[in-house]
Design a protein around this nucleic acid. Structure first.
Ligand code: SF4
Ligand code: SF4
Lengths: 137, 137
DNA sequence: TTCAATTACTATCTTAAGGTAGTATTAATA
DNA sequence: TATTAATACTACCTTAAGATAGTAATTGAA
């Protein structure tokens, strides 16, 4: 009952970059050191984020990374989607989920409310909302 | 954002046994076949449940498994606890969770409500609640 | 007392996530 | 143009969950 390591890293990376809005580019070495994420693993994640159009990368000397959109327009849900960590509408709490509406266990209806709250939270929270409070995650 | 395979299996196994209250013992072969859980993996899980005192086992011919307590007294949360799949009070949505109360991201407070709903649901739902509706999970 | 049916134990294999290593490519600047 | 600092690519290693295999221990019944 937890996000993958990779998703957690991605969120922290993006939040960090969002928070550095003054400095145009942030490089992998800095991200790795400040966020304590293994350098090589971090660059792998960055490449994914570049391909998914969340991050702009500049290669070569003086290069680095920047957000491709405004931090208020990148939602936590967008990040979770990339790493297959978001909550699907049909997803069963237990992960079993081949029960139909006709025949549901006692958890089925109880799961609706927290599920919708979580989906809404992920869908409506932007990087701007989780960064920029002076302390890093 | 999902329970482990093992937890899912354990819940389904226990719910199945709860549903067979008429037949005193259920054996591993039957459980494996009816629930489509690999036999050897299932017996490994059963041994854990026996050690954790949720299941009573009888070895030898005519042996099998039975619930050790009434199905209304075994909670889903008890099962999740065994396989380290329950939601801890201090657990952060993102799994990051080294932020203190002084300095919280926008998700921190929003997570409280769904978290409490889920914890309550797991704590208060028994095997009896999820089994015995005529259809198996 | 032997056999067959059952659970328990120990060791190993497989898979996917997480992580590492080395090299290629790119681009600013001396 | 050569150097250097950066990202990108490809391949591999590690770890833990998931799954399998073989054998031992237990027990009811022929
Ligand atoms: S009825 Fe229960 S097990 Fe089936 S999909 Fe709904 S929550 Fe999951
Ligand atoms: S502030 Fe945000 S990142 Fe930190 S523990 Fe709370 S929810 Fe998690």
């Amino acid at each position: 009952m937890q996000l993958s390591n990779t998703s957690q890293y991605a969120i922290r990376i993006l939040a960090y970059i969002a928070d550095q809005a003054d400095s145009p580019l942030v490089n992998a070495t800095q991200l790795s050191q400040r966020l304590h994420i293994p350098y090589k693993f971090l660059t792998k994640i960055m490449t994914t984020l570049v391909k998914k159009d969340l991050i702009l990368s500049i290669r070569g000397k003086e290069g680095g990374y920047a957000l491709k959109r405004d931090s208020s327009e990148i939602m936590v849900g967008d990040i979770l989607d990339i790493f297959n960590d978001s909550i699907q509408d049909e997803q069963c709490v237990l992960g079993i989920g081949f029960c139909n509406g006709m025949c549901k266990c006692a958890l089925h209806d109880q799961w609706m409310e927290p599920k919708h709250l979580l989906q809404k939270m992920f869908r409506e929270s932007s990087l701007k909302d989780i960064a920029g409070r002076g302390c890093k995650i």
